[in-house]
Design a protein around this nucleic acid. Structure first.
Lengths: 341, 341
DNA sequence: TTGTAAGCGTTATCAG
DNA sequence: CTGATAACGCTTACAA
């Protein structure tokens, strides 16, 4: 009863090599626990049959998948690309496979994706940011699935995190902007509901404003989804006020590039007429015209550290300690002092 | 012998609802084949237990995963993002889940990823482009795994494809450039080995040059991986020749943006001093300064059609017919007539 | 409409 | 060092 023209199984290999399935399995997973001659025979059978282990069967028997799931807010721009790339490279070194999905910044989709990944047997999960229905973490805890949060470091959150202090990072930038002499500040933030990164960045700006004696009416804030077009629209709104801001801080580089683009369309010179800043320092920031002053985030380092941390949690059954990474301002051409009135 | 604090199984649900596992399974997969009262009882048990089906077990039993695998060359830029997004949205409508991985444009990595996806039980595969070791397709055929190629339509390839004619598309653009009066043309191509899209685009340019009476020495070609920085470097090389080109055709928008950026750094005005064109029409092309003349590819439509085609192949056991989509030139500011010498 | 039971392809435990 | 054999959690004929 051979299976005609279908995927070969362990059994087929075993039969061909004249050994038991157990031995074949060993050859593949613990080669040193098998004598050379046998192994050779088995491996050649594997080869001529073109055998590939059935993943589902393996998972069922071994009860682990060596798979890590990651859910990022978006794949449509490069915000998470570099970090995730480094994450996956490091995972690969340790024998893990990465499964990625995206949530479009929607909590309910994120939740669904978490379920999917868990059902698929992810041994561990990487999530972006801390804001999340606590039930999700209850459930994950109950299933004993290690979770690590990235892109936002919080020292005493329920879940360990590898990332940076969004609030401090944005504080530093806002402080610098005010220091240059700007007194009317525009803010184009991402949607802050359910997004601690966005929220903390806003808070950083507010802190800096307050600390430098600005009134809350000096800071004009808009929230909008992270898309280029939205950055452009928000820029228009901000600049069409009676006393438009002289500097606009954007929640990320994508929004900032949108603002930059719209400024050009409106015939405004950056930074002479208005300064614009971003956050993340993705490639786009360097390429933009003028090049974007922004907060540099160590994406690759963050991805790598996250992988190491998560693998550690998995293999040592430990809790995970988290890591705070440093960010710094990259000053390019889009920020300058305000024009003399 | 209850499993303390671990994932609940079908058995747990069955016991709690006082039915057999078969009935629980039915409630989940064929709700209408179960009487209301029972179903209600079962579903509430599912709910209170927080039961999620074990994917691996389900796959083993049902012998399908309702999962489609896709391998794209890169996630680092947005070239494939939009199309893939549409692909996955359409798949979702039909009850399929998408698993994505990337190959970094390396054939050996693509092959490994194909193996991984197949081992994970992908019911079907989406691959980019036709160039590929034939053994891969032999193997996939033997395993009866439907494969669809996208981003490159070839009417009589072994594998059906949904995409466009890269050669014709680039021919049209090159023709337009020459028509404007350009006689010395630079080409910054992606690496053409193992990449039929890149190769066909080059051929399109060569056809157009020949047909318009240009000599092969009038066309200066460079190949380089698709990255912004490489576009910039290639631009420098091309422009540092004795008789530099007056127009540079780039293999995609990413290379073109790099070229654009370097032009600005070198103090060259685009298009007055040199024209630059791209390919793909990703968002970057609109945002670039000056905005990029490029070939518009109907990414979303392509993704959607690919999904429909692949689902069709899966559900009707059919061969797949393929679809050729139209592209068109989008003229923006980066292309103009050559300066009068 | 519901239950019984036979797999699905591995891994892992125990003997030998 | 190698071979039986019992899980793993679910789907799906086949019976009842």
């Amino acid at each position: 009863m051979s299976k005609l023209r279908s995927a070969p199984t362990l059994d087929d290999v075993a039969r061909m090599a004249g050994v038991s399935t157990a031995t074949v399995s060993r050859c593949l997973n613990n080669p040193d626990r098998v004598v050379d001659a046998t192994r050779e025979r088995v491996l050649s059978a594997v080869d001529t049959l073109g055998y590939t282990p059935n993943f589902a069967a393996r998972v069922m028997a071994a009860k682990r998948t060596s798979t890590i799931g990651a859910i990022i807010p978006t794949m449509e721009n490069a915000i998470f690309a570099r970090g995730l790339q480094a994450f996956q490279e490091e995972l690969h070194k340790h024998g893990y496979t990465l499964l990625v999905s995206s949530s479009a910044y929607k909590p309910e989709i994120e939740e669904e994706q978490i379920r999917t990944l868990v059902a698929r047997g992810a041994d561990g999960l990487l999530l972006i940011g801390h804001d999340r229905d606590r039930k999700i973490h209850d459930d994950l805890e109950r299933r004993k699935i290690p979770v690590l949060v990235a892109w936002s470091f919080l020292p005493d959150a329920r879940v360990p995190s590898v990332g940076f202090d969004n609030r401090a990072a944005m504080f530093e930038l806002a402080h610098r902007v005010i220091e240059l002499g700007h007194r009317r500040i525009g803010v184009i933030s991402g949607v802050s509901a359910g997004n601690d990164r966005a929220r903390h960045r806003i808070e950083g700006i507010q802190d800096a404003a307050r600390q430098n004696g600005l009134l809350s009416s000096d800071v004009m804030m808009l929230e909008t989804p992270y898309e280029i077009e939205n950055g452009a629209e928000a820029f228009s709104k901000l600049m069409s006020q009676d006393a438009p801001p002289t500097a606009i801080l954007c929640g990320n580089d994508v929004l900032a590039v949108g603002a930059l683009h719209r400024a050009r369309e409106m015939g405004l010179r950056v930074p002479d007429d208005v300064s614009i800043t971003g956050f993340d320092d993705i490639e786009l920031a360097r390429i933009a015209t003028p090049a974007l002053t922004t907060v540099h985030v160590p994406h690759r380092e963050m991805g790598r550290r996250a992988a190491l941390e998560l693998v550690g949690m998995l293999e040592n059954q430990t809790q995970g300690t988290g890591t705070r990474l440093a960010t710094h301002i990259v000053e390019r051409q889009s920020l300058g002092p305000p024009a003399k009135a």
